[in-house]
């Protein structure tokens, strides 16, 4: 039984190794596909969003072919480490906690976190007291989860696999508020589903938790790739490509100060 298992693993591995060897100059980009307007899937299964456009622009700049791989958020760093893709471009905030496991490029955008709640919820602010006794939905393994868990100790924190699920539950009234990136919340509030709710305020970012913004993550020690990405980010910021993509999705500058 052992032998047949090993054989199987070996053949599978060899087949895949051959496949990987052919495609050396393509860069595989991991993304989530459930975080509109940054990265999400359309009805015909296409990945779209700010992250995707930025990734494509960066790949053009670096003269490599990019291939996208979708991966659930809470497994996205292990999947990177396991070699399922070479970089994560999925609005991942640069934090000290993550830096122990992966290397980051410079930020490619930075927008503040915020809280959205039902219009009739009576929640008027984002302080611990404002949300005491309420149920807050947050996507797990995010800076927002870490922040909520630390700050809103008098509230019930519910962890969701993606932002879209926490939105579904806020719309149906299962939870009272959600904590997420302001651009993501605003995008959702524009949809019919978001009519129930509004933004009650933005959260002042805490550097130790929220970090300097979203960066591109690569495996530890791949400094050459980080350098290439950093140069490409600078290049698209300089040649106007970044601003073009920014304007396509947001009426304000998402790069931040």
């Amino acid at each position: 039984m052992r032998i047949s298992k090993l054989l199987l693993a070996a053949t599978a591995t060899l087949a895949l190794a051959a496949g990987a060897a052919q495609a050396q100059d393509t860069l595989r980009i991991g993304t989530e596909g459930a975080y509109p307007p940054f990265n999400n899937l359309t009805a015909d299964g296409q990945l779209v969003g700010f992250d995707i456009d930025i990734a494509n622009a960066l790949c053009d700049e670096m003269k490599v072919k990019c291939e996208f791989v979708t991966q659930d958020w809470d497994g996205i760093i292990p999947a990177l480490q396991a070699g399922k893709f070479d970089a994560i471009i999925a609005s991942m905030s640069i934090t000290e906690e993550r830096k122990q496991k992966v290397d980051f490029t410079n930020k490619y955008y930075n927008t503040p976190p915020a809280i959205a709640a039902a219009k009739d919820s009576g929640i008027n602010g984002v302080s611990k007291e404002d949300l005491a006794g309420k149920t807050i939905g947050v996507a797990t393994s995010t800076i927002h989860y870490n922040y909520s868990e630390l700050t809103y100790t008098d509230s019930t924190i519910k962890g969701y696999p993606t932002s879209q699920e926490e939105q579904l539950d806020l719309a149906s009234g299962r939870i009272d508020a959600i904590n997420d990136d302001i651009s993501v919340l605003e995008e959702w509030l524009k949809t019919p589903d978001g009519a129930c709710c509004h933004i009650v305020g933005t959260i002042t970012p805490i550097p130790e938790i929220h970090g300097p913004g979203a960066g591109i993550a690569v495996r530890k020690g791949e400094t050459a790739l980080v350098e290439k990405f950093n140069k490409a980010i600078d290049a698209i910021r300089a040649n106007g490509k970044y601003q073009e993509i920014n304007a396509k999705y947001f009426p304000y500058d998402v790069y931040g100060g």
């Binding site: 809470d74 122990q100 797990t140 393994s141 519910k158 962890g159």
Partner: peptide, 20 residues
């Protein structure tokens, strides 16, 4: 755990996603 009930597996996934 996939519908937000924090069972053993849910806590495990949380711990893994925090500590990797």
């Amino acid at each position: 755990a996939l519908i937000t009930v924090p069972d053993l597996m849910g806590q495990t996934r949380l711990a893994f996603s925090r500590s990797f």
